[in-house]
Design a protein around this nucleic acid. Structure first.
Lengths: 145, 145
DNA sequence: ACTGAAATACGTTCAAG
DNA sequence: CTTGAACGTATTTCAGT
């Protein structure tokens, strides 16, 4: 992970399908040298993969919400994962510091689907309560790889 | 946006660099038909681009936090964006329903850098207070495109 | 560790169905 | 809208530096 690798990640972040020759041109390397570096970063786990970015609205996920989870007693990460895994609208979940036990990001078609998903999250009796913040507008969305 | 388009997005979500021929094989189309669909989704704005996924730890963003922003008086989205734009650790920011005015996601090298970023967010006198939840462990991380 | 060339595979276009 | 063939590029490997 030197400066060239970081530049490569920046360029791939902008265009994950950019040809190696073009990437090499921008950082002063040949296509084969670029491939070697990308391959090494994949092998080292620095690069986890390549993906497509879509417009959530167009794909039917126009409604997003941040939900804090408060659990009854002590609920471990493994148990939390088992609960949240079953809800397809859960696109991200982490345990966090603070009063809440977990922070969950939900994506649904509309507020009705969001409500249904929330009900599923709250259904297990390990979950005591939730605190939701529905996304109104996006201010910033940076691709930090 | 039919069922085949959705399948294509699912496949590209898993591997954004998958060859068209391979994608076509999986959904029962030729490479050129796949290309036409992908091109159309790009033109329609359904596909916003392709990117690389990295291990935040390996890239020097091991510390993440969700921060609620409470503002003094009425602060518009445009002004909020101007404030948060200046802080490179801010990777996502949205206005939300509820008590908080905005939800901000921060990524930093460590807790020290996180603290510095938080200070920058709180510096403008439009920001009254913040409420942070530092990420301890990832439970779920789904690529919903 | 990088380069450049050679071989293979892929992306892209287009006539035809 | 899709196919399949033809053509232009890109990827991939490897010998040489």
């Amino acid at each position: 992970m030197d400066a060239l690798d970081r530049k490569l990640l920046d360029l791939l972040s902008d265009d994950g399908r950019a040809p190696y020759a073009e990437l090499g041109e921008r950082i002063g390397l040949s296509a084969s040298a670029v491939k070697r570096r990308v391959d090494r970063m994949i092998a080292d786990g620095v690069i986890r993969g390549f993906t497509v970015l879509t417009d959530p609205e167009a794909v039917g996920h126009g409604t997003e919400a941040y939900v804090e989870l408060f659990c009854r007693g002590i609920v471990g990460p493994a148990e939390l994962r088992r609960i949240l895994e079953k809800v397809p609208e859960v696109i991200e979940a982490t345990t966090v510091t603070g009063q809440a036990d977990a922070m969950v990001t939900l994506r649904a078609k509309d507020t009705q689907d969001l409500e249904r998903a929330l009900e599923q999250v709250r259904a297990p009796n390990q979950v005591d309560s939730t605190r939701s913040a529905i996304v109104l507008s996006r201010l910033i969305e940076r691709r930090v790889h």
